[in-house]
Amino acid sequence: MSVRPAVESWGASDLAARVRAGNRASIARAISTVEAGGKASAELLKALHEATGRARLFGITGAPGVGKSTLVGALIAELRNGYQSVAVIAVDPSSPVTGGAILGDRVRMTQHVEDDGVFIRSLASRGSGGGLSLATSRVAEVLDAAGLENVIIETVGAGQSEIDVIDVADITTVVCAPGLGDDIQAMKAGLLEVADVLVVNKADDPMATLTVNQLESMLALRSDAGRKVPLLKTAARDAVGIPELADALNQAFEKLDQQGRAERRLQRMQRLLATVAGGIVARRLKATRGRRLDQLLTRMAAGELDVETAAVALLKSDVWRQD
């Protein structure tokens, strides 16, 4: 008899029970299942749902090369010092052409690999358009249901995906490094707005102070400058500043009272719904061939209908129905 679960031949409730009991192999298989989506995933998530809502979900994002993985590694160690269990979802982009990916974030977290209180899972973005948020939030739910107290979601903030992380996390930390001027410019585009905590990593670099100053002045210029965002310096490689970061995360989380958390959860649901619905519309539209759609497109091309009006018409009507 094998205890390695083969989910397709199991009932969802069996697997859910094993996940909730903290069986690692079952957690791993459950993640594969929810990541793939579809009916099995939906059934499993339903069976897991009542056990969710306990974990703290921390998003950590930033440009490539700022030391996110090293920071996450150090944060794991810090949380483990307090005997808290930690899961990490390390997200890397898939190739849009082949769908393949190299998932290398674990390299910086090697020291925790045999710790029973740590569960690290690499996730490929598998395309965009909300798919990432959806998969990540499902995986987080599995880990939550499995009883992991902290779930850290690490994503590369190199484009759209850094925005996605706030769809999933309770608290979002944005990491930058000294001397990456371009990234700071890019952050104006919205990353700063989503940050609950800001970190300047590699603080032993002589340029670090300059970067901190730049960020402070940018924080002051935000539209919601009244919202206080802690700005911390870390040198993750030497574990410098990590206890302070853990404190800041705790405080940010505690500031979200029950009501705040519930609100955030609803906001997350709303954003998730928007991204996923958008993805579905886009996919369906691409797959649609039909008279109604043709008419709509022809009118748009002829300038009779502007795009916005056409979109509203699309949502109201049933143009994507095959006929």
């Binding site: 791993a28 082949t98 769908g99 393949g100 990916a101 998932l103 674990r106 690999v113 690290i120 899972r121």
Partner: peptide
């Protein structure tokens, strides 16, 4: 393997046997 559409979990060298088993299991 990536170019063939697979997801490759890539580790640092010098892995211990037990660590590999753990990774293989957790990463399914």
């Amino acid at each position: 393997l990536r170019d063939a559409g697979m997801e490759v979990i890539y580790t640092a060298p010098w892995q211990e046997v037990q660590a590999l088993v753990r990774m293989a299991s957790d990463e399914d």
